[in-house]
Amino acid sequence: MMKAQTIEEKQYLVRFNADTKSHLHVLDDNICLTKCPDKICTIFCPAAVYKWEDIRMHVGYEGCHECGSCRIGCPHENIRWEYPRGGHGIVFRLG
């Protein structure tokens, strides 16, 4: 059987040089709470960066692949998206 099946195991294979500040900002948790029943970013984000915690969105920006999906896919334009500051963020080793 193959290893690295769960997203946690997959993320463990990736190197990040995390910044101290987040480059991702959910603008209004209330919109997530009332207007987004599926909390869809918690589903399509390939790194499981977004985790819904009852009334607020937890953003684990440290594991972000900088793909841009959340900026495009959030149906309420509720995510402010930037690249991490120079020298920070995901580090590609092989791919």
Binding site: K10, Q11, V14, H65, C67, G68, I72, R93, G95
Partner: peptide, 9 residues
């Protein structure tokens, strides 16, 4: 053996 995981648009 998986050695890296990547996501890109």
């Amino acid at each position: 053996e998986p050695v890296e995981y990547l996501a890109h648009l």
